[in-house]
Structures are given as C-alpha cells and as structure tokens.
Nucleic acid binder design. Structure first.
Lengths: 123, 123
DNA sequence: GTTTAAGTGTGGAATGTACCACACATTGTG
DNA sequence: CACAATGTGTGGTACATTCCACACTTAAAC
C-alpha cells in the first residue's frame, strides 16, 4: 500500500468517479488527457501491485476497480502536509488554510453546520 | 520555480525553520534523518537551479537560505489537493478535512476567531 | 612554503516513473 | 477453419530522482 505518484493519482481519480468496474479502454476514454492504452495498463499493473486497485477477468478483458476510498487517500495526504508544515497538527493546517484562502465568517458558519451534523450522526 | 520532490521538501523544511543561512554541514546535522554530505549538496544544487534557494559564498563555504516562503508552497500543495479531490474548491477541501479530522465546535470557534482577526487586519 | 582539514565540483550508479512497440492470446463471425 | 477485432503480456527506452566516491580547491596552522 505504497504512496501514489501523480500519474497513478490520475488513474485513481477515474476509478473513484466511476460507479462500476472499468476495463482499460474505458478508463482511457475517461482519462483527463490523451494516453496510450499500453501506458495506461502499465500504470494499472503498478497500482495492482501496490494494492490500490483490484481486477477480475470478464471474457478476455480485465475489469479494474479502486480498492481504496478517496477520502482515505486524501486524509493520508493532508496528514503528510500537516507533518511537513504544521508540526503534525491537522488543526493548525486547517487554520493555515482558512487564513491563506481568506474564508469569510459566512464560510465558517457553514463549517460549523457540517460539524454539528457530523456530531449528531456519531452520537 | 518547479515543483518540489519529497527529498527536496525535507531540505526546504530545514531551511525554513532556520533563522539564518546555513552551510551544507549545518543542514546535514539538522536533517530529520541520516544523509551524506554529498547527497545533500546534490539536492541543494537542484533547488538552486529550480530557484527555491539562494546561496552566497563565505570563506570557502556556501551559505544557503530559502528564497521561497513555506506558506506559499503549502498553498500550492493544498490547491493541488483541492483540484484532485474537491473539483478545485479549497472551501470544499477544508470542509472535508473538518469532517475527517473530527473537529469539535470549540475548534470551529477558534477558526472563527482567526478569520475575524485576519479580516480586521486587512481592513 | 608545507601540511591538514573543510568544502566543493563532477561524473556516474541505482532506482522509480512514465511511456511505448510488438508479439501473443482470446473471442466472435463468415 | 480462417480471419479480423479486441485485449493482454513482455521487454525495453527515456528521463528524473536520489545517492555516492573521488579528485580538486581553498583557508588556516605550523
């Protein structure tokens, strides 16, 4: 379960946004930029090895699907950013972002609503 | 002003946390893990070429200092995350983090204070 | 001047990433 | 069966990243 390279992330994006297993040709046509079929399949093999995707045969083709969820990867990445820039505190990282992205009090209110909702759910 | 690789980021962290220009041997001793002097200097040359550090001679040594600020790099990276995971919306990225990191209403209050302060400053 | 220590410059090896050409296998069609 | 279409497997190139060994240079000490 190694880290994702930029190119591998592009592939994962397509798989995460898909609602069903895809064969390489499908991924290719949904890809955000032109890519050769063989190049894409090479990336898929790496992702398979790293454990980020699973595949099953169907006829002569392989159907690929993501075996990790995007929120999990996002969390891994934000944690790394927090380590690097904020002494490991994700709270501080969020504060930084709020500052640099110039969020307004209205935006904060929306955040509060999100928090209150998620607290209600978990109780 | 190219992007930073993981290894280069480690070097930048040391420089950003330093309050004065450092020579390679200084960076080496502050490094978060063992690294050979020559390997470190190779990384510094790349950073110099990319424009992320500046250096000046002092005696027989070079003194290196960061020529970019950490907040700027952090912002670049969070924007990339937002592009990948949140359709380009940093607001949505922050919301995601607030959710997954389980911030409490008290934490949100602190964020609000940060926002109000920064708004007062900018007016 | 000679010697020694501290630093630098250079070339290059090892690995990982991204990409591709081509041969092979499988399925469906006449 | 022959044959075309679709997909896969394999090997291999080009490039960036990370790391290092070794020769050279400079400054200071004697």
């Amino acid at each position: 379960m190694d880290n994702l390279t930029p190119g591998e992330l592009e592939v994962m994006q397509v798989l995460w946004n898909a609602d069903r297993p895809l064969k390489p040709a499908d991924i290719q046509s949904l890809f955000p930029r032109p890519i050769r079929n063989a190049a894409l399949r090479s990336a898929l093999l790496v992702l398979l090895d790293k454990g980020h995707v699973a595949r099953r045969r169907e006829g002569r083709a392989f159907l690929y699907s993501a075996s990790t969820r995007p929120t999990r990867e996002l969390r891994r990445m934000t944690r790394k950013l927090a380590e690097l820039f904020c002494g490991g505190s994700t709270r501080e990282l969020i504060a930084q972002m709020v500052r640099t992205e110039r969020l307004s009090p209205t935006d904060i209110d929306q955040l509060r609503r999100i928090v209150e909702e998620s607290e209600r759910e978990s109780s």
